[in-house]
Structures are given as C-alpha cells and as structure tokens.
Design a protein around this nucleic acid. Structure first.
Lengths: 204, 204
DNA sequence: GGTATATGTAAACGGTGTTGACCTGTCAAA
DNA sequence: TTTGACAGGTCAACACCGTTTACATATACC
C-alpha cells in the first residue's frame, strides 16, 4: 500500500516520460498560441504539433485554459515590469512599455494574446493573471495609503491603451509623435498616483 | 421572374410572420444576454426561449454575432453619451458614467456584456461598435487638431476602467470615496484632452 | 387551379473541449 | 521468476456548439 519514492511506471523511453511530454505540450502550445492566437488553436492542433495524444493535455493541465495558465505563469513579464528598475522610474517604465506595445514591440506571446483576446477561457485566465501578477504586486510595491486604488487606476490606463490598440489598430495613436505620446501617457500614470489628499490647486 | 412589391408568403398567422419572429428573437436574445451573458447563451437557448426554430436566427441575422450587432445597433448608448448634454460637461458626463458603472449602475445589457466579455465574436462585434459609435463620433465631436488621438486616449481610460472593474470586481475602487474617485477620473479625461502644444509647466 | 415564394421545420455537418475505458511496459514485492 | 500495481499513453466516444441544407407548408398572385 505504500507509495514508493519513485513511482511505479517504466523508464521514460526515448522522448517520452511525464516531464518530457509536459514540456513538449508546453512548447508546442506556446509556439502555436504565439503564431495563431489562443482561440484559433484547438487542443487537437496542439497535441498533433507536439506529437502527443489529445487526452494528455487534459491529463497534465486539466484543460486548455489550465495549459495557458501554466504558460503565463512561466512568462513572468508582469512582475518584471514592476521591479526591473529603480522605483522612481516606475511610471516611465510603464509608459514606455505601453507605447512600445502600440508599435508592435514586446513579447511575441503577449502580442499574440492581445491579438486574439477572446474566449471566456482566455479572459478569465488572463485577467486572473493580471490581478495576481500585476495589480496586487503593484499595490504592495507602492506601499502607501490607498495603494490598491492607485494600482487599479494604473492598471486601467495600461489595459485601456491595450484595448484601444486592439480596436483601432493603434493607427491614430501611432500617427502621433511617439515621444509626445509617451510623455502624455507618463502624465496620465502619474496622475493615477497623485495623492488623494492633495486638493485641487484651484481650491482654497 | 419579376420580384413582386410585397413578396409572396402567406399572411402572418397568429404570432408568426417575419417581423413578429424577428422581434421575438431580438427580445429573447436581449433578455438572455442580459441575464446570462453573451458567451453563455447558445443559439438553441435563444430559439427555444423565443419559441422559434434555431435556423431562423441565422436566417434573419446571419449569425449569433449578427444578432448581437443588431441589438447593439438599437441600443445607442454610446452616441448618447457624447451628445446628450452641453459640450463643456462632456468629460464630467463621461467620468460619471464610468464611475456609475463601477457601482453596477447603467443598462442591464451593458452590464451583461461587460460581465461576459469574451468570445472572439463578442469582442469583434463590440469593438467594432465601440469604434464606429464612440471613438469616431467623439473625434468628430471634438473637432480640433489631433482629435483622433484625444478620442483614442479618452476611450482608453474608459475601457481600462471597465476592464479593471471586470478583473477585480471594482472592489478596490468602490472602497474609495466615490466623489474623489469621480474627480480623479475627470482629471484623467481632461488630461487626455489637453493640448499637445502646451508645454510642460516646468519647462521654459 | 396552379405556381412561385416567404416562412418555418428537421436533421445533419464539422468542429470544439473533455472524459472514461482500455492497453502497455516497467518496477517492486512475493 | 512470477505476479501485481501503476504511471504513461491511446482510442473512441460524449455533449455541446454555430451553422447549413433539404424539405414541408401555406398563402397570394396569375
């Protein structure tokens, strides 16, 4: 009845075995999601590309959405955005990130997810990730009064820019001077962070 | 071979006939989308609720997405937002609309679409509507230099707030003082509209 | 009356994500 | 060496989706 340290099954065989298979699914999925978008890639496509049976996706990741969750978990672009430089340049970092996305820069995977944003599955997975890997860490990072509100506002500006880019291709924004645009976004982000205590300059 | 003025078919019969059926489908779809969300309502559910054959949805609206397009076309909340009051209060109107949505106010249909945002279909339909019924009219309404850029920025803030609300339920934002929040959003919107010519006050 | 035509019906199509029953090969214990 | 347990893999099916096609029905015009 005791569960042995290294469990029952056979030796991995050439390119098989739990870890190898998991990895192949992850790699293929990442590749396909990147080139085709989440919604356009079916479980069967992933399995076939990975040279693996369809059922194994569900066995190892629970569902197609679970597979995406795992991919995003390994990606880690959100936390990096917050902490990859000096705190006083946080807003500038974010502003430049936003604008660069307008120009089609940034991770292939990110672009792909932006592009194919859809499916209740992707929505819920992506949004969950956004909350736990961006908004909440950002609030902690800010570490002051109302930091949750400030973090939410920052997230709103960032997400909104992303959505507008998706809606109208970002043409209108890209047509404008990039540096001016970056400065404007920066100003918006800083306004998001402005203290609520500070009264309107016009007020007594 | 000539197509008669008033075409061939029979008299409408009790509750049937082209217009009656179309209307019943529209009504049922609106009701179900509102209570369940777009993605969770299937064509067959709509048809069954309307007491109508499934195929008629596609006959009359081309597709499930086409049905949503028609519903949104009749809704007209976007254009109203822009023009329903004096121009100098545009930003305040928008700010109050945004914040009210945080509190679960606003059209039932709007809330439902927000809630169930997903499906490539909904995305493309909704975003198309957003572009032609909000961003573009807003740009025309603003009627000044770079109005497309300003309109896009406005849209970004509005959409972003919507997404944040969806992601984290708006709890963090709702926890804050509503009036202060409205004023902050208002400030953000006005910053979106600020002239690009105007130099940074700190600059010479 | 005959027929064209608008309306409604029923059943299927190809696709999706997912699941359960079934092999298969290897190790640990008997 | 035989046996049994079991991880890993396979296959065929399930239930559902949006959509389409072939067919029935009933009216209004000629």
């Amino acid at each position: 009845m005791e569960r042995p340290e290294v469990a029952g099954g056979g030796a991995p065989a050439p390119g098989r075995g739990r870890e190898a298979t998991r990895e192949r699914i992850l790699t293929s999925a990442k590749e396909l999601f990147t080139s085709e978008g989440f919604g356009s890639v079916s479980s069967r496509m992933i399995a076939s590309h990975a040279g693996v049976n369809v059922a194994l996706i569900n066995r190892y990741f629970g569902s197609k959405a679970g597979l995406l969750t795992e991919i995003l978990r390994e990606d880690g672009v959100f936390p990096r955005l917050i902490t990859e430089g000096p705190p006083e340049l946080l807003t500038r970092r974010l502003a430049e990130h936003i604008v660069s996305r307008l120009y089609g820069e940034g991770t292939l995977l990110q672009r792909a997810l932006d592009h194919s944003a859809g499916d209740p599955d992707l929505q819920s997975v992506y949004q969950g990730r956004l909350k736990t890997a961006f908004i909440e860490p950002l609030a902690v990072y800010l570490d002051r009064e109302n930091s949750r509100v400030h973090a939410s506002l920052i997230a709103a500006v960032m997400l909104g820019m992303g959505r507008v880019r998706r809606i109208e291709g970002g043409d209108a924004l890209r047509a404008h001077d990039r540096e001016q645009l970056t400065e404007r976004v920066l100003a918006l982000l800083e306004l998001c962070l402005a203290d609520f205590g500070a009264p309107d300059p016009d007020d007594p």
